[in-house]
């Protein structure tokens, strides 16, 4: 197993009577892109802030890069964009980054490097207050990448970006991941997470409901087979797959819980039993489907616990 870059143990944050984060234990491995998902107010940003040492946990602990979260030597190895970019409005984008670079003792060439990476070099001399939301967001990502950190924490990095900007940001994260960069990506855009994340953690009402690979979370694919006669097809498919893995879905269509690669075998099997095969399609559950299913059931179970 790859080295753990982030490991939290029962991380909890309480504000008065409100439990913002409730015993979250999550792990992020070196070199992976970890998607951190949850509805608004679920506790994602609070968890990330605790990892960065911006707020102290009420209980539990977080270890980042093998050391307690919040230590300056750890924070120096993390690049973070948390809940929107915070910069000096009167400074240019470049001067903002120069300021942040000086905190790390970095040369101005590093500023130029990250400006190029987020495609802001042309507007780097403009004042931050004149930037569009998308440009501000890109500058925030640039600041996070200063000094080539070991861990990149990006909280909603595509907020405010136009479709082209979102595609660029996605490509940037993918290229970073390909270069071995560990990334924690909090995002509402599930298609984006599905596309670029290796593993995800789903947090609802402060609790980590599930942590798994994207594929596991989505579940296996289902083959939808339209064949006649339906009863004969059902019997044939039940012999091929587990009895419980086959069900009718109406319109002479049967659903078989088999991977997409099994489609040729299924067709051959049915034809061998003199069954007419009209259509075979692969039905895959999207991350969005899995997420909504999980968050709605998670909220319901949290309410049951509360009541």
């Amino acid at each position: 197993m790859k080295e753990l870059v982030v490991e939290t143990d029962g991380l909890t944050k309480r504000y008065g009577d409100r439990l913002a984060v409730d015993r979250v234990s999550m792990t992020v491995r070196r070199g992976e892109v970890y998607g951190f998902l949850g509805p608004n107010g679920a506790g994602k940003t609070t968890t990330l802030r605790m990892m960065l040492g911006l707020i102290r946990p009420t209980a539990g602990a977080a270890s980042v890069l093998g050391r307690p979260a919040g230590r300056p030597d750890v924070t120096a190895r993390i690049g973070a964009l948390v809940e929107g970019p915070g910069f000096y409005p009167y400074l240019s984008g470049r001067d903002n980054l120069r300021t942040m670079a000086r905190y790390q003792g970095l040369a101005n060439t590093e500023v130029d490097r990250v400006l190029e990476m987020v495609d802001l070099a042309d507007r780097a001399r403009d004042a931050f207050k004149g930037y569009s939301l998308g440009m501000k967001q890109r500058l925030g990502v640039a600041a996070a990448m200063l000094g080539a950190p070991d861990l990149l924490v990006l909280d909603e990095p595509t907020n405010g970006l136009d479709p082209a900007g979102m595609a660029d940001m996605r490509a940037l994260v993918v290229s970073l991941a390909e270069a071995g960069q560990t990334v924690i990506l909090s995002s509402h855009i599930l298609a984006e997470v599905q596309e670029i994340c290796d593993r995800v953690g789903v947090i609802v009402e402060g609790r980590l409901l599930r942590e798994s690979t994207v594929a596991d979370l989505r579940g296996g694919a289902t083959l939808r087979v339209r064949a006649t006669p339906e009863d004969a097809a059902l019997a044939a498919l039940m012999r091929l797959a587990d009895d419980e893995g086959v069900r009718r879905s109406g319109n002479e269509t049967l659903e078989v819980e088999l991977p997409a690669t099994a489609a040729p075998d299924v067709v051959r099997h049915l034809v061998a039993h003199s069954i007419d095969v009209h259509e075979v399609t692969v039905a895959e559950r999207s991350l969005e489907d899995a997420f909504f299913e999980m968050t709605s059931s998670g909220m319901a179970s949290n309410k049951e616990v509360a009541s």
Partner: peptide
């Protein structure tokens, strides 16, 4: 208000060093 303390503290210096600076 600008969120710059947050940005500065995530750049690596200790809080004492950042405020001291």
């Amino acid at each position: 208000g600008w969120g710059t303390w947050k940005t500065v503290f995530t750049q690596g210096p200790s809080r004492s060093a950042a405020v001291g600076g």
